[in-house]
Computed example of a mutant assay.
Amino acid sequence: MFQWVQRRVQAAYERLLRREISGAPTHVAVIQDGNRRYASEQGEDAPDGHRAGAQTTEQVLNWCQDMGVEELTLYSFSTENFDRPDHENEALFDLLEEKLYDFGDDDRVHDGEVCIRAIGDREALPERVRDAIDYAEDRTANYDSFTLNVALAYGGRNELLNAARDVASAVEDDELAPADIDVSEIENRLYDSPVRDVDLIIRTGGDERTSNFLPWHANGNEAAVFFCTPYWPEFSKVDFLRGIRTYESREESWRRAKAKRALALVKALGGVELEEARRIIDRFRGTLPEESNVEELGAEELGIEELDVEGDGKAVE
């Protein structure tokens, strides 16, 4: 009886969260933490926890597609994981190999046109895992409706270090001028194919840190971060929707802060003509949340009584 009530309450909360969410981030990255602790609490071995976590991974992929997320990156095996006992890693490599082949053949992957890619130092992985990566990538290489990145033998510092070394070599060989080093030059050296900026990082298992995960694409984009206590095998759709809600709340707060800074800048210009002030504010119209209160933002001090963010974006008296 209690479990039935619990399921009903969770279903109702899920519907409530879904109504509160108006959109979705483009790129979600997940740190799948807690598989081993979950297994330990169940009286099982670490490989059992990883296998239970793999089932959650398949569900999250479906949830992302349902919500309109376009890219999902899973932190499946870090460079630090090589320090774990060999027997545990071998079991995990077996599971990764199995799942990569399964994904390469899965009708849902092909029906949804999911492009599967591995990011990280794949040469550090066993040959059988590299073969499975090649299989999944080759089978889905022509798809572009959804991208699934699997981070294997991945470390953010190593990623940036290798890119920096590559740039230094290009400069030394006169293939690149120092003045031409820009964001695109770094990004082109991170992966063979571009990875979108990360909008939301989700970490399960209770720890509140991002563990060297996608520093260029997450920190550079000021990604929202959602930490939650369930272990990865216990991660539910409610938890996922709460993460999406965190992203939306952060985006709204960020837009409002940016709009306030823009208005403060205009006021600081002192003797600027009103028409010029309007022109500057108009440049920031895309940053204003629809429910922005003009008085709260301080625009009335500029003689502007309304900021139209739903129509043509013009500030009117």
Rank of each mutant, 00 (worst) to 15 (best):
T210I: 14
Y191M: 09
I181T: 12
E301N: 14
F235K: 06
A52W: 02
E123Y: 11
D173K: 15
D102N: 04
E251Q: 14
D308W: 03
F213A: 10
Q3H: 10
R122G: 12
D45M: 08
W4K: 13
Q32V: 14
R285H: 11
A257P: 04
L190P: 11
R18G: 07
R7S: 13
T229H: 12
R209M: 09
A218C: 00
N219C: 11
V272H: 13
W254G: 13
V167Y: 11
Q32T: 14
H217C: 01
G313I: 06
V266M: 01
A170R: 05
L214H: 09
I21P: 08
A163G: 05
E208I: 02
E97N: 11
A52F: 04
T57I: 14
P47M: 05
F77G: 01
E127C: 15
A132M: 00
P215M: 02
V167K: 05
E310A: 13
E97Y: 12
S253L: 15
L297V: 15
W216G: 08
L61R: 04
A268R: 10
E97G: 08
V69Y: 01
R19I: 09
R37P: 09
E295P: 07
A24W: 08
I201F: 03
A12G: 11
I133R: 03
R209L: 01
Y191W: 07
G23S: 07
Q10R: 05
S249T: 15
H87K: 14
A54P: 10
S78V: 09
V109C: 01
N188Q: 13
E248M: 00
R250N: 11
T229M: 06
S76R: 00
N158W: 11
E317T: 07
D45F: 02
Q3E: 13
I21D: 00
F93A: 07
V150T: 01
D66E: 06
A163N: 10
E137K: 04
R51P: 04
I116S: 04
R285F: 08
N162C: 10
L72S: 02
A168H: 07
E276H: 15
V129H: 14
W216V: 12
E90M: 08
E113I: 08
P47N: 00
Q10L: 10
E14T: 10
A177S: 08
V316G: 10
A170S: 13
K99L: 09
A54C: 02
P126A: 01
V195W: 03
L269K: 00
C64K: 10
R19V: 15
T57D: 04
A141Y: 04
T73Q: 14
L241N: 01
L190I: 05
A118Q: 04
E14L: 15
L265Y: 15
Y101M: 06
A177Y: 04
G53T: 03
H110C: 00
Q32P: 06
G206R: 05
D199I: 00
Y247S: 14
K314T: 15
I186C: 03
L160A: 01
S169Y: 06
V60G: 05
I186W: 11
V238G: 12
A164L: 07
E71W: 00
A257N: 07
D66L: 14
